[in-house]
Design a protein around this nucleic acid. Sequence first.
DNA 1: GGTATCGGTTGCTATGTGCAACTTATATGC
DNA 2: GCATATAAGTTGCACATAGCAACCGATACC
Lengths: 158, 158
Amino acid sequence: MAREENLRSILAECGISAALEVVGERWSFLILRGAFNGLQHFEEFQSTLGIARNILSNRLGRLVEHEILKRQADAADRRKIVYKLTEKGMALLPVLIALRQWGERWVSGLPSNPVLVDRNNRMPVEQMAVRASDGRTLMLGDLEWLDASELPAAEKAA
Amino acid sequence: MAREENLRSILAECGISAALEVVGERWSFLILRGAFNGLQHFEEFQSTLGIARNILSNRLGRLVEHEILKRQADAADRRKIVYKLTEKGMALLPVLIALRQWGERWVSGLPSNPVLVDRNNRMPVEQMAVRASDGRTLMLGDLEWLDASELPAAEKAA
DNA sequence: GGTATCGGTTGCTATGTGCAACTTATATGC
DNA sequence: GCATATAAGTTGCACATAGCAACCGATACC
Protein backbone atom coordinates (compact mmCIF):
# COMPACT_ATOMS: atom_id res chain seq x y z
CA MET A 1 0.00 0.00 0.00
CA ALA A 2 1.60 3.25 -1.09
CA ARG A 3 1.21 5.68 1.72
CA GLU A 4 0.35 8.85 -0.14
CA GLU A 5 -2.72 7.60 -1.99
CA ASN A 6 -4.45 6.52 1.18
CA LEU A 7 -3.34 9.21 3.53
CA ARG A 8 -6.68 10.90 3.69
CA SER A 9 -8.56 7.75 4.57
CA ILE A 10 -5.93 6.77 7.11
CA LEU A 11 -6.35 10.08 8.83
CA ALA A 12 -10.14 9.99 8.76
CA GLU A 13 -10.44 6.50 10.19
CA CYS A 14 -7.63 6.87 12.64
CA GLY A 15 -8.25 5.88 16.24
CA ILE A 16 -6.69 9.14 17.34
CA SER A 17 -9.75 11.11 16.24
CA ALA A 18 -11.97 8.60 17.96
CA ALA A 19 -9.96 8.83 21.16
CA LEU A 20 -9.90 12.61 21.10
CA GLU A 21 -13.65 12.86 20.81
CA VAL A 22 -13.87 11.12 24.17
CA VAL A 23 -10.88 12.46 26.09
CA GLY A 24 -9.76 15.41 23.97
CA GLU A 25 -11.49 18.23 25.80
CA ARG A 26 -9.66 20.50 28.13
CA TRP A 27 -9.30 19.03 31.64
CA SER A 28 -10.21 15.46 30.66
CA PHE A 29 -6.65 14.17 30.84
CA LEU A 30 -6.00 15.98 34.12
CA ILE A 31 -9.16 14.52 35.64
CA LEU A 32 -8.02 11.07 34.56
CA ARG A 33 -4.57 11.67 35.95
CA GLY A 34 -6.27 12.51 39.24
CA ALA A 35 -8.34 9.34 39.07
CA PHE A 36 -5.19 7.27 38.46
CA ASN A 37 -3.68 8.93 41.51
CA GLY A 38 -6.60 7.90 43.67
CA LEU A 39 -8.97 10.87 43.59
CA GLN A 40 -12.55 9.69 43.89
CA HIS A 41 -14.88 12.49 44.98
CA PHE A 42 -16.10 15.64 43.29
CA GLU A 43 -14.61 17.92 45.92
CA GLU A 44 -11.28 16.13 45.75
CA PHE A 45 -11.03 16.70 42.01
CA GLN A 46 -12.21 20.26 42.38
CA SER A 47 -9.81 21.33 45.10
CA THR A 48 -6.84 19.36 43.78
CA LEU A 49 -7.13 20.48 40.18
CA GLY A 50 -8.62 23.92 40.75
CA ILE A 51 -11.10 23.35 37.95
CA ALA A 52 -14.38 25.31 37.81
CA ARG A 53 -17.22 23.33 39.36
CA ASN A 54 -19.55 23.49 36.37
CA ILE A 55 -16.82 22.31 34.02
CA LEU A 56 -15.83 19.50 36.38
CA SER A 57 -19.44 18.44 36.61
CA ASN A 58 -19.71 18.41 32.83
CA ARG A 59 -16.45 16.48 32.31
CA LEU A 60 -17.20 13.86 34.94
CA GLY A 61 -20.59 13.39 33.30
CA ARG A 62 -19.01 12.92 29.89
CA LEU A 63 -16.40 10.50 31.19
CA VAL A 64 -19.15 8.50 32.87
CA GLU A 65 -21.24 8.55 29.67
CA HIS A 66 -18.30 7.17 27.77
CA GLU A 67 -17.74 4.55 30.46
CA ILE A 68 -14.26 5.74 31.33
CA LEU A 69 -15.36 6.46 34.88
CA LYS A 70 -18.23 4.90 36.80
CA ARG A 71 -20.34 6.74 39.35
CA GLN A 72 -21.19 4.95 42.59
CA ALA A 73 -23.00 5.99 45.73
CA ASP A 74 -20.66 6.12 48.71
CA ALA A 75 -21.96 3.53 51.18
CA ALA A 76 -20.48 5.32 54.20
CA ASP A 77 -21.77 8.81 53.38
CA ARG A 78 -24.76 9.21 51.14
CA ARG A 79 -23.86 12.79 50.27
CA LYS A 80 -20.80 11.54 48.47
CA ILE A 81 -20.46 10.00 45.06
CA VAL A 82 -17.46 7.86 44.20
CA TYR A 83 -15.94 8.12 40.74
CA LYS A 84 -13.92 5.06 39.74
CA LEU A 85 -11.96 4.13 36.67
CA THR A 86 -13.53 1.42 34.56
CA GLU A 87 -11.47 -1.11 32.60
CA LYS A 88 -11.73 1.21 29.60
CA GLY A 89 -10.47 4.06 31.74
CA MET A 90 -7.57 2.08 33.15
CA ALA A 91 -6.60 1.19 29.59
CA LEU A 92 -5.62 4.83 29.18
CA LEU A 93 -2.66 4.36 31.51
CA PRO A 94 -0.11 3.98 28.67
CA VAL A 95 -1.35 7.22 27.11
CA LEU A 96 -0.99 9.14 30.36
CA ILE A 97 2.41 7.71 31.17
CA ALA A 98 3.68 8.41 27.67
CA LEU A 99 2.43 11.98 27.94
CA ARG A 100 3.97 12.37 31.38
CA GLN A 101 7.34 11.04 30.29
CA TRP A 102 7.35 13.34 27.29
CA GLY A 103 6.36 16.35 29.37
CA GLU A 104 9.10 15.61 31.88
CA ARG A 105 11.77 14.97 29.31
CA TRP A 106 10.96 17.78 26.89
CA VAL A 107 8.98 20.45 28.73
CA SER A 108 9.60 20.59 32.46
CA GLY A 109 13.11 19.25 31.89
CA LEU A 110 14.82 16.23 33.37
CA PRO A 111 15.27 15.12 36.90
CA SER A 112 11.64 14.39 37.67
CA ASN A 113 10.49 13.54 41.13
CA PRO A 114 8.79 11.48 42.44
CA VAL A 115 9.53 8.62 40.12
CA LEU A 116 7.10 5.98 38.93
CA VAL A 117 8.41 2.58 39.98
CA ASP A 118 7.50 -1.08 39.83
CA ARG A 119 6.04 -1.75 43.30
CA ASN A 120 7.64 -5.18 43.14
CA ASN A 121 11.31 -4.21 43.05
CA ARG A 122 11.17 -0.40 43.24
CA MET A 123 12.89 -0.02 39.89
CA PRO A 124 11.74 2.83 37.64
CA VAL A 125 9.48 1.86 34.79
CA GLU A 126 10.84 1.83 31.24
CA GLN A 127 10.49 4.71 28.83
CA MET A 128 7.35 4.24 26.76
CA ALA A 129 8.25 3.28 23.21
CA VAL A 130 6.77 1.77 20.09
CA ARG A 131 8.18 -1.75 20.04
CA ALA A 132 8.57 -4.51 17.49
CA SER A 133 7.34 -7.99 18.37
CA ASP A 134 10.85 -8.84 19.56
CA GLY A 135 10.88 -5.83 21.88
CA ARG A 136 13.15 -3.56 19.82
CA THR A 137 12.26 0.14 19.99
CA LEU A 138 10.96 1.38 16.65
CA MET A 139 11.48 4.92 15.38
CA LEU A 140 9.35 6.77 12.89
CA GLY A 141 11.40 5.55 9.93
CA ASP A 142 11.00 1.92 10.99
CA LEU A 143 7.23 2.08 10.67
CA GLU A 144 4.87 1.50 7.79
CA TRP A 145 1.12 1.28 7.28
CA LEU A 146 0.02 -2.07 5.90
CA ASP A 147 -3.40 -3.18 4.79
CA ALA A 148 -4.67 -5.94 7.09
CA SER A 149 -5.05 -8.29 4.10
CA GLU A 150 -1.33 -7.97 3.39
CA LEU A 151 -0.17 -9.04 6.83
CA PRO A 152 2.38 -11.90 6.64
CA ALA A 153 0.82 -13.96 9.43
CA ALA A 154 -2.77 -14.01 10.69
CA GLU A 155 -2.00 -11.46 13.36
CA LYS A 156 -3.70 -8.28 14.34
CA ALA A 157 -2.45 -5.54 16.56
CA ALA A 158 -1.15 -1.98 16.25
CA MET B 1 6.62 8.14 50.63
CA ALA B 2 2.96 7.82 51.50
CA ARG B 3 0.99 8.67 48.44
CA GLU B 4 -1.82 10.70 49.94
CA GLU B 5 0.23 13.36 51.68
CA ASN B 6 2.00 14.35 48.50
CA LEU B 7 -0.77 13.91 46.03
CA ARG B 8 -1.29 17.58 45.50
CA SER B 9 2.35 18.26 44.77
CA ILE B 10 2.56 15.21 42.53
CA LEU B 11 -0.32 16.50 40.49
CA ALA B 12 1.00 20.04 40.32
CA GLU B 13 4.48 19.09 39.18
CA CYS B 14 3.37 16.33 36.91
CA GLY B 15 4.69 16.26 33.37
CA ILE B 16 1.18 15.74 32.11
CA SER B 17 0.25 19.36 32.86
CA ALA B 18 3.44 20.50 31.22
CA ALA B 19 2.76 18.39 28.14
CA LEU B 20 -0.83 19.55 27.87
CA GLU B 21 0.15 23.18 27.92
CA VAL B 22 2.06 22.55 24.74
CA VAL B 23 -0.07 20.00 22.88
CA GLY B 24 -3.35 20.06 24.78
CA GLU B 25 -5.32 22.44 22.60
CA ARG B 26 -7.92 21.23 20.19
CA TRP B 27 -6.39 20.15 16.86
CA SER B 28 -2.82 19.95 18.11
CA PHE B 29 -2.75 16.15 18.25
CA LEU B 30 -4.44 15.85 14.89
CA ILE B 31 -1.95 18.23 13.32
CA LEU B 32 0.87 16.15 14.78
CA ARG B 33 -0.73 12.97 13.53
CA GLY B 34 -0.75 14.56 10.09
CA ALA B 35 2.89 15.52 10.43
CA PHE B 36 3.79 11.93 11.40
CA ASN B 37 1.94 10.79 8.31
CA GLY B 38 3.99 13.03 6.09
CA LEU B 39 1.96 16.22 5.77
CA GLN B 40 4.26 19.19 5.37
CA HIS B 41 2.46 22.21 3.90
CA PHE B 42 -0.20 24.52 5.26
CA GLU B 43 -2.66 23.66 2.50
CA GLU B 44 -2.09 19.93 3.01
CA PHE B 45 -2.97 20.16 6.69
CA GLN B 46 -5.89 22.41 5.93
CA SER B 47 -7.51 20.27 3.27
CA THR B 48 -6.72 16.94 4.92
CA LEU B 49 -7.94 17.85 8.39
CA GLY B 50 -10.64 20.33 7.41
CA ILE B 51 -9.46 22.75 10.09
CA ALA B 52 -10.22 26.48 9.89
CA ARG B 53 -7.32 28.41 8.37
CA ASN B 54 -6.90 30.87 11.23
CA ILE B 55 -6.84 28.10 13.82
CA LEU B 56 -4.38 26.08 11.76
CA SER B 57 -2.17 29.13 11.45
CA ASN B 58 -2.32 29.67 15.19
CA ARG B 59 -1.61 26.02 16.07
CA LEU B 60 1.27 25.67 13.63
CA GLY B 61 2.71 28.85 15.10
CA ARG B 62 2.44 27.50 18.63
CA LEU B 63 3.94 24.14 17.70
CA VAL B 64 6.84 25.97 16.04
CA GLU B 65 7.27 28.22 19.11
CA HIS B 66 7.48 25.13 21.27
CA GLU B 67 9.94 23.54 18.85
CA ILE B 68 7.74 20.59 18.10
CA LEU B 69 7.64 21.55 14.45
CA LYS B 70 10.19 23.59 12.51
CA ARG B 71 9.32 25.95 9.69
CA GLN B 72 11.52 25.92 6.59
CA ALA B 73 11.35 27.68 3.26
CA ASP B 74 10.70 25.26 0.42
CA ALA B 75 13.73 25.43 -1.88
CA ALA B 76 11.77 24.36 -4.95
CA ASP B 77 8.86 26.79 -4.52
CA ARG B 78 9.33 29.91 -2.50
CA ARG B 79 5.61 30.33 -1.90
CA LYS B 80 5.64 27.19 0.16
CA ILE B 81 6.71 26.64 3.72
CA VAL B 82 7.65 23.20 4.94
CA TYR B 83 6.67 22.14 8.44
CA LYS B 84 8.82 19.33 9.82
CA LEU B 85 8.86 17.46 13.08
CA THR B 86 11.79 18.22 15.33
CA GLU B 87 13.38 15.65 17.61
CA LYS B 88 11.08 16.89 20.37
CA GLY B 89 8.11 16.44 18.06
CA MET B 90 9.13 12.95 17.01
CA ALA B 91 9.42 12.04 20.68
CA LEU B 92 5.63 12.33 20.82
CA LEU B 93 5.26 9.17 18.73
CA PRO B 94 4.60 6.91 21.74
CA VAL B 95 1.85 9.24 22.93
CA LEU B 96 0.14 9.24 19.56
CA ILE B 97 0.42 5.50 19.08
CA ALA B 98 -0.87 4.82 22.59
CA LEU B 99 -3.80 7.13 21.92
CA ARG B 100 -4.46 5.49 18.57
CA GLN B 101 -4.38 1.99 19.99
CA TRP B 102 -6.73 2.97 22.78
CA GLY B 103 -9.14 4.67 20.37
CA GLU B 104 -9.16 1.64 18.11
CA ARG B 105 -9.61 -0.84 20.90
CA TRP B 106 -12.14 1.03 23.02
CA VAL B 107 -13.89 3.59 20.83
CA SER B 108 -13.99 2.73 17.15
CA GLY B 109 -13.89 -0.97 18.04
CA LEU B 110 -11.49 -3.64 16.93
CA PRO B 111 -10.34 -4.72 13.55
CA SER B 112 -8.43 -1.58 12.64
CA ASN B 113 -7.04 -1.08 9.19
CA PRO B 114 -4.49 -0.25 7.97
CA VAL B 115 -2.17 -1.69 10.56
CA LEU B 116 1.04 -0.13 11.82
CA VAL B 117 3.89 -2.55 11.16
CA ASP B 118 7.63 -2.84 11.57
CA ARG B 119 8.97 -1.99 8.10
CA ASN B 120 11.68 -4.58 8.64
CA ASN B 121 9.55 -7.70 8.87
CA ARG B 122 6.02 -6.39 8.36
CA MET B 123 4.87 -7.60 11.74
CA PRO B 124 2.42 -5.42 13.66
CA VAL B 125 3.91 -3.33 16.45
CA GLU B 126 3.26 -4.33 20.06
CA GLN B 127 0.51 -2.86 22.17
CA MET B 128 1.82 0.13 24.08
CA ALA B 129 2.22 -0.71 27.75
CA VAL B 130 3.96 0.47 30.89
CA ARG B 131 6.81 -1.99 31.35
CA ALA B 132 9.13 -3.00 34.13
CA SER B 133 12.85 -3.03 33.50
CA ASP B 134 12.59 -6.73 32.61
CA GLY B 135 9.89 -6.02 30.04
CA ARG B 136 6.88 -7.23 32.02
CA THR B 137 3.69 -5.22 31.49
CA LEU B 138 2.74 -3.30 34.61
CA MET B 139 -0.84 -2.55 35.60
CA LEU B 140 -2.05 0.27 37.79
CA GLY B 141 -1.75 -1.81 40.97
CA ASP B 142 1.86 -2.67 40.20
CA LEU B 143 2.91 0.97 40.27
CA GLU B 144 4.06 3.26 43.04
CA TRP B 145 5.48 6.77 43.32
CA LEU B 146 8.89 6.84 44.92
CA ASP B 147 11.01 9.81 45.90
CA ALA B 148 14.15 9.93 43.79
CA SER B 149 16.32 9.78 46.92
CA GLU B 150 14.76 6.45 47.84
CA LEU B 151 15.59 4.72 44.59
CA PRO B 152 17.44 1.42 45.15
CA ALA B 153 20.09 2.02 42.48
CA ALA B 154 21.36 5.31 41.04
CA GLU B 155 18.89 5.19 38.19
CA LYS B 156 16.53 7.70 36.79
CA ALA B 157 13.66 7.13 34.45
CA ALA B 158 9.85 6.99 34.70
C1' DG C 1 -33.07 21.94 64.99
C1' DG C 2 -29.19 24.60 63.35
C1' DT C 3 -25.03 24.40 60.74
C1' DA C 4 -21.54 22.32 57.63
C1' DT C 5 -20.51 19.49 53.71
C1' DC C 6 -21.23 17.24 49.16
C1' DG C 7 -22.36 17.50 44.55
C1' DG C 8 -24.08 19.91 41.79
C1' DT C 9 -26.80 24.15 38.84
C1' DT C 10 -27.49 28.99 37.28
C1' DG C 11 -26.29 33.43 35.29
C1' DC C 12 -22.85 36.24 33.64
C1' DT C 13 -18.46 37.30 31.52
C1' DA C 14 -14.12 36.02 29.08
C1' DT C 15 -11.80 33.26 25.96
C1' DG C 16 -11.49 30.07 22.09
C1' DT C 17 -13.26 28.20 17.67
C1' DG C 18 -15.34 28.32 12.98
C1' DC C 19 -16.43 30.55 8.66
C1' DA C 20 -15.90 33.47 4.75
C1' DA C 21 -13.74 37.09 2.59
C1' DC C 22 -9.48 39.53 1.88
C1' DT C 23 -4.20 40.03 1.33
C1' DT C 24 0.65 39.58 -0.02
C1' DA C 25 4.16 37.09 -2.31
C1' DT C 26 5.44 33.96 -5.59
C1' DA C 27 4.72 30.91 -9.59
C1' DT C 28 2.74 29.63 -14.17
C1' DG C 29 0.67 30.14 -18.87
C1' DC C 30 0.42 32.78 -22.92
C1' DG D 1 5.42 41.08 -19.36
C1' DC D 2 0.76 40.67 -18.12
C1' DA D 3 -3.14 37.96 -16.35
C1' DT D 4 -4.32 34.33 -13.54
C1' DA D 5 -3.57 30.84 -9.98
C1' DT D 6 -1.70 29.17 -5.76
C1' DA D 7 0.51 29.24 -0.94
C1' DA D 8 0.18 30.92 3.42
C1' DG D 9 -1.62 33.47 5.98
C1' DT D 10 -4.91 37.69 8.31
C1' DT D 11 -9.22 40.05 9.52
C1' DG D 12 -13.91 40.61 11.15
C1' DC D 13 -17.81 38.67 12.87
C1' DA D 14 -20.90 34.82 14.78
C1' DC D 15 -21.13 31.10 17.92
C1' DA D 16 -19.47 27.73 21.40
C1' DT D 17 -16.85 26.59 25.35
C1' DA D 18 -14.56 27.83 29.82
C1' DG D 19 -14.15 30.33 34.16
C1' DC D 20 -16.16 32.66 38.33
C1' DA D 21 -19.21 33.42 42.01
C1' DA D 22 -23.46 32.78 44.01
C1' DC D 23 -27.07 29.70 44.94
C1' DC D 24 -29.52 25.04 46.00
C1' DG D 25 -31.24 20.50 47.67
C1' DA D 26 -29.92 16.51 50.14
C1' DT D 27 -27.43 14.42 53.74
C1' DA D 28 -24.45 14.40 57.90
C1' DC D 29 -22.90 16.27 62.38
C1' DC D 30 -23.65 18.30 66.98
